[in-house]
């Protein structure tokens, strides 16, 4: 029956990593990306603990009477113990950056924040932002691109 428990555990750990990575890739909300990163971290930790597990062994704690007993590998456990703490540090750093982005660009959507950052960079460099000539009639800037090329901005 032990292989069934192992299979279920492996499915849980791999599924946790896959769900976290998929959430990170598919989301545009910055908070959700950090949250999905935390979920993926939990899956990776579970996979590491499973790698060092033995079915016939006890917890790696040395008791006076049981010195000859087989024990689970304690090295992955120590690594995962460190990885959990480092993961919380990474989450705190990422959330502080998210708060900074929110203060500067007043949004939590990744695409909107990227657009506003690009606009701020263009404005600081004194460049008219490049716009498509094939856009809808209302948004088509007719004289602007020639001026951009004459100005010799960093887009050339």
């Amino acid at each position: 029956m032990n292989w069934a428990i192992g299979l279920v555990m492996f499915v849980g750990a791999v599924g946790l990593s896959v769900i976290g990575i998929a959430g990170m890739l598919m989301s545009n909300h910055l908070f959700r990306m950090v949250l999905a990163l935390a979920v993926a971290e939990a899956g990776a930790n579970l996979l590491l603990i499973l790698a060092g597990y033995r079915w016939d062994a006890a917890a790696p704690i040395l008791l006076p009477g049981h010195s000859t007993q087989a024990m689970v590998d304690p090295v992955p456990q120590a690594m995962v113990l460190t990885a959990i703490v480092i993961g919380v540090g990474v989450q705190a750093l990422a959330l502080s950056l998210v708060i900074r982005v929110r203060q500067h660009y007043a949004t939590l959507d990744m695409r909107v924040a990227r657009q506003r950052m690009q606009d701020a960079l263009d404005q600081a460099a004194g460049v008219v932002p490049p716009r498509s000539q094939e856009g809808p009639a209302g948004e088509r800037p007719l004289p602007a691109p020639t001026r951009t090329i004459e100005a010799g901005g960093p887009h050339d």
């Binding site: 555990m9 939990a42 930790n45 603990i49 597990y53 456990q77 113990l81 703490v85 929110r102």
Partner: peptide, 29 residues
């Protein structure tokens, strides 16, 4: 999986402190 120390750390830090940090950041924004 007979890793009681990791279980204690995960329950206190991963489940407690991490949630607290997230809620603090949401409150800030």
């Amino acid at each position: 999986l007979s890793a009681p120390d990791v279980a204690m750390t995960e329950a206190s830090i991963g489940s407690g402190l991490s949630t607290a940090i997230f809620l603090y950041a949401i409150n800030r924004t």
